[in-house]
């Protein structure tokens, strides 16, 4: 047989093998976590906060962590949106090519910064303002983490807008602001939604940045200055206890977290379709 043919088949075989390994591992991760966690999942886990002796295996649930994670992720997503949207607009219609490229470079670098570093930096900011670990601190650290993700994703979406569409709206005498806020924003709505949900998903799953900025508590916070629990840290801390019952709750918390992330991803796909009604192809 031809040597070249053997080489071709060999490498093709290797490729299929690696693809299978990677897909297999993905299934293994989801399967193991769900199989371990689902039996420990109960209604009371979802609807109650930890009661006395919870971490020794007694009653209660992780409602504090579920609510806390939602607070943190929604807060950070909202705060990021307030900054990311104008930045994406500015890069699209106002900035010179040079300045835009500088901003993109610095956002790309921010994207690569480890979340623990954001945690550390958030901690420095909190020290500066005399804050203790609290919801606000966690939101700030998470915002730092997801801001570059959201901004660059929006920026990429906006760069795809057809020149003619901008021309059409400038041709009617629109100002730059009107072009970005009334036309480009509607054209890119589905893509921007994807960007926001991507950032949300990333934010709700991150633990390292909120480890020392958000704290952890058994209660649901009443103000921005109360410490707050979160699902990733609930997984981490419960896993760290020596009691099998509590460890099982860690698995269950991981399932809850996975489900939230899966829902975010699915709703992103569904909403994107629905919000595309007005998009000009």
């Amino acid at each position: 047989m031809d040597r070249r043919k053997i080489e071709e088949d060999f490498f093709k075989g290797l490729m299929i093998l690696s693809t299978a390994i990677i897909v297999g591992i993905l299934f293994a991760i989801v399967a193991v976590v769900v199989l371990k966690g689902a039996p420990a999942l109960s209604l009371s886990m979802l609807t109650q906060t930890p009661k006395g002796g919870y971490y020794l295996g007694k009653g209660g649930g992780i409602l504090n962590a579920i609510i806390g994670s939602l607070y943190l992720a929604f807060g950070a997503t909202a705060l990021s949106l307030i900054i990311a949207l104008p930045v994406a607009f500015y890069l699209r219609e106002y900035a010179s090519e040079r300045f835009a490229n500088f901003v993109r470079l610095s956002l790309d670098i921010l994207w690569g910064v480890p979340s623990i570093v954001y945690g550390a930096f958030g901690f420095i900011i909190m020290l500066y303002f005399g804050l203790r670990a609290c919801l606000l601190g966690g939101i700030i650290a998470l915002t730092l983490l997801i801001l570059p993700i959201m901004t660059r994703a929006m920026d990429e979406v906006m760069r795809m807008v057809a020149f003619e569409l901008r021309e059409a709206s400038y041709g009617l005498g629109s100002t730059k602001l009107e072009v970005v806020s009334k036309v480009i924003s509607r054209q890119t709505l589905p893509g921007m939604l994807t960007a926001v949900l991507l950032a949300f998903g990333r934010g709700i799953g991150d633990a390292a940045s909120i480890l020392f900025t958000a704290g952890y508590t058994d209660y649901i916070p009443h103000s921005l200055f109360d410490p707050v629990a979160s699902l990733p840290l609930a997984v981490f801390f419960q896993l760290g206890t020596p009691f099998p019952e509590v460890q099982e709750r860690a698995y269950a918390s991981a399932v809850v977290l996975l489900v939230i992330i899966l829902l975010t991803s699915v709703s992103s796909r569904l909403l994107t379709k629905r919000w595309s009604r007005f998009v000009i192809k």
Partner: peptide
């Protein structure tokens, strides 16, 4: 796979 949190 990219969206799975690191604690998981």
């Amino acid at each position: 796979l990219a969206g799975i949190p690191s604690v998981v």
